[in-house]
């Protein structure tokens, strides 16, 4: 990963509350964002672009942060046919349609503790977008603080010609792991961020119920069980660096120097943990295995371990 500590033309203040994190410029507070909205710095050709990325595809339409635009993880970031992300042309089109150029400061927020916002941020990182940040606490915190929501959808003139978002090939290697990579990594550091029931293998046996499940329950051998929510406070904000280190380093024995792979069920909750390890704790080589349990638990002859966390 490149060093992202440089300041940008639109925002230069690193908020002091985030200063202890490895890459504090990756987070913004609701207060800071509200000030940007108030100052008219959201939207417009040189402004910050704020994207709402939710699990629930209708939530944006019920009301959103003024000036924000909808980015749907499923419709906008996934290929419609192959289980993969959009390609370079599609990604450029998604960005251009929202008035985003390569050097735009993008702030992403969403529901469910920013799962899908973190996922969107991670996908944007696959394409090497430099300045993309998360709103700490996400949509829920903004709403809980009684801040303004609007149903007005901004009219954005898509960027075209020289101004359009460049077609940049996705580089999966540094931050995305495929099944083969995980097999080669066995014995290395793995973080399973699902619930304890999913980890142990108990949760996959619900007769008569259709579900997007897996043929086998359990976890990838050697994985540490650290449910994603342990990284979050009650209000959805991230825990302090000290508290995060107590969990991931002291308790789980993970090290920022080790290559680490995080996974969940389809890769969204593990994007949240990928963000924590990479940007808050400064791990140098974290990959998100987005195939996650819906791939691993359905694969023939891959090793599976069952039982409660050790």
């Amino acid at each position: 990963m490149a060093d992202h500590t440089e300041s940008t033309p639109t925002t230069s203040t690193t908020e002091s509350a985030f200063a202890a994190y490895a890459h504090p410029e990756r987070l913004v507070s609701t207060q800071w964002l509200a000030e940007q909205v108030e100052a008219g710095k959201v939207g417009g050709p040189d402004g910050i672009v704020v994207l709402e990325s939710d699990e629930d595809v209708l939530l944006y339409d019920t009301g959103h942060i003024p000036g924000s635009l909808k980015l749907d993880w499923h419709q906008d970031l996934n290929d419609a046919v192959v289980r993969d992300y959009v390609d370079a042309e599609q990604f450029a089109a998604v960005m251009s349609a929202r008035g985003i150029s390569r050097d735009t400061t993008v702030v992403v927020y969403g529901d469910k503790n920013n799962w899908w916002a973190a996922y969107a941020l991670w996908v944007m990182s696959l394409f090497g977008h430099e300045d993309v940040r998360l709103l700490d606490g996400g949509r829920a915190k903004w709403v809980a603080e009684g801040r303004e929501l609007t149903k007005d959808v901004p009219q954005v003139a898509p960027l075209t010609g020289d101004a359009a978002y460049p077609v940049v090939e996705r580089d999966d290697t540094p931050i995305r792991a495929f099944k083969e990579d995980v097999l080669a990594h066995l014995g290395g550091a793995l973080v399973d961020v699902r619930s304890p029931g999913e980890f142990s293998g108990e949760l996959l046996h619900m007769p008569d119920y259709p579900q997007e499940g897996a043929m086998r329950g359990g976890h990838i051998p050697g994985a540490r069980s650290v449910p994603w929510a342990r990284a979050a406070n009650e209000d959805g904000t991230f825990k302090s660096r000290e508290d995060l280190e107590a969990i991931y380093l002291t308790e789980q024995g993970l090290s920022p120097a080790d290559a680490t792979i995080a996974y969940c069920r389809i890769g969204e909750r593990s994007s949240h943990t990928w963000f924590v390890l990479t940007h808050l704790l400064g791990f140098g080589q974290v990959r998100n295995y987005d195939g996650s349990w819906t791939e691993w638990g359905n694969s023939v002859r891959v090793p599976v371990e069952q039982g409660a966390p050790k």
Binding site: D72, Y209, P210
Partner: peptide, 16 residues
């Protein structure tokens, strides 16, 4: 509009 993946939720409701 909402993706086939999300529609599975409605399939689950109907089946229950």
């Amino acid at each position: 509009a909402v993706s086939p993946l999300r529609l599975r939720g409605m399939v689950g409701m109907l089946s229950r």
